[in-house]
């Protein structure tokens, strides 16, 4: 068969990031905007005065360290999945989940301490904002935990853990994001509380 082919005029393939990954990133952008709104509301409101001043409980250091550690274990789980090491992947996920739960309980503990220091959700917005920031972050963290649990189930179902490495990479990206978000919030609180 004779075909004439115009070599010069070949339509370029267009940019293609994996759409699922891209969707995840956009989703994280929307979460960033939620917190951007809350933290800028915090600053604007604080600038108007009539704002209670209190010490940030030092236990927040503990929770921050725990969440940071869980990010490392999540990364380890992903790396193990890429090496098709099933046992380590599952272990990594279990530990991450556990650390996530410990983080949440530490946050609750911090709330208790706040209450002991007369900082309440209901009352001066200076306190309310702290609860809202921590609470909304915890809410997202729970969604991240559920996501990890789904991956854990998948890791048991899969014949080879390497099969789930792409999905796992999405969930760990989300987890790192939640970790980063918390660090941002913590730094923000240290500066502005």
């Amino acid at each position: 068969m004779v075909t004439d082919l115009h070599i010069k005029e070949v339509p370029q393939k267009q940019l293609g990031i994996n759409p699922k990954k891209f969707i995840l990133w956009l989703f994280m952008v929307s979460i960033v905007m939620v917190f951007a709104a809350l933290t800028s509301g915090f600053i604007v409101r604080q600038a108007e005065g009539n704002w209670i001043i209190y010490e940030l409980p030092s236990q927040l250091w503990i929770s921050t360290a725990i969440l940071f550690a869980s990010s490392l274990t999540a990364h380890w789980a992903l790396k193990s999945a890429q090496k098709n090491n099933s046992l380590q992947t599952k272990l990594g996920l279990w530990v991450t989940l556990g650390l996530g739960l410990v983080f949440l309980s530490t946050q609750l503990w911090v709330w208790e301490i706040l209450v002991q220091h007369d900082v309440y959700l209901v009352g001066n917005p200076g306190g309310s904002f702290l609860y809202v920031l921590m609470g909304v972050h915890a809410f997202h963290l729970i969604s991240g935990l559920i996501y990890l649990m789904i991956m854990l189930v998948k890791s048991y179902r899969a014949n080879e853990v390497s099969e789930i490495q792409f999905k796992l990479s999405l969930s760990t990206t989300y987890w790192h994001f939640l970790d980063g978000l918390w660090i941002y919030l913590y730094v923000f609180l240290i500066i502005y509380h």
Partner: peptide, 9 residues
Amino acid sequence: INLRTDGMS
């Protein structure tokens, strides 16, 4: 961003 056909810059 991701699903444009070839040439659709």
